[in-house]
């Protein structure tokens, strides 16, 4: 049985030489590394020699990093699949009916709303996924567990992507059209499209919250 100091030395090898940063991977590899070392020490080898042998047996730094990379990839894949499932579950008839009703309402009320007001509402909607991320970051939710760190990375990438998409195709496009209020029907149509886009982005923001609350446990990798 290894002493706590010897275990710390092995842990240091894993974090320092192989850059193992996730607790779950560290737990598993440390146990493996320690078991290999103990096996050689049982044959009267010194701790130094036994751990060197075990390190080589484990594939040294590169092999170990690959295990961590595979772990990240596996979790990321699960997150992506689950996020798609969540989004798919939102796009059912209640969402369609609500959007259709709101869209109709927007079409008829648009002439009474100022272009600037409309633009502001749409812009705020577009920011909602990023607002969720900002709130989580402020509360340090992204640092709670290894899996959450990985989920967070996914959300950050995904949030930026949807915001950019919304900004480029939604806000930018609509902004110029909103200025052209002379053709009121065009303004009505674009306000309705803007509202539909807002609904999509809001649902996307809600999906972030749901996804983050899920307990991925390699039931994430």
């Amino acid at each position: 049985m290894l002493t706590p100091t010897q275990l710390d030395l092995l842990r240091l090898d894993l974090s320092g030489l192989a850059n193992i940063e996730y607790d779950e991977v560290m737990t598993e590899l440390l146990d493996h590394y320690a078991s290999l070392t103990e096996r050689k020490m049982a044959l009267n080898m010194s701790f130094d020699d036994a751990s060197k042998w075990a390190w080589a047996e484990l594939g040294s730094g590169e092999g170990l990093q690959q295990i961590q990379t595979d772990y990240e990839k596996s979790i990321m894949k699960q997150v992506r699949v689950r996020h798609f499932e969540i989004l798919k579950s939102y796009f059912r008839w209640p969402a369609f009916v609500t959007t259709a009703l709101l869209g109709t309402l927007m079409y008829f009320t648009a002439p009474f709303i100022s272009a600037n007001g409309m633009f502001t509402v749409f812009f705020v909607c577009g920011l909602s996924p990023l607002a969720v991320l900002f709130y989580g970051h402020r509360k340090h939710l992204d640092q709670q567990t290894d899996k959450r760190k990985i989920v967070w990375t996914y959300l950050r990438e995904s949030g930026s992507f949807i915001f950019n998409l919304f900004y480029v195709f939604g806000i930018n496009g609509l902004d110029s059209l909103f200025e052209e209020k002379s053709k009121i029907w065009l303004f009505q149509v674009h306000s309705t499209i803007g509202l539909v886009l807002c609904m999509v982005v809001l649902l996307y923001a809600v999906s972030f919250i749901q996804l983050f609350k899920e307990n991925f446990s390699l039931k994430l990798a």
Partner: peptide
């Protein structure tokens, strides 16, 4: 090898 085992387990 550990490089094959752990990804498979995960």
């Amino acid at each position: 090898t550990e490089g094959a085992l752990y990804p498979a387990l995960h």
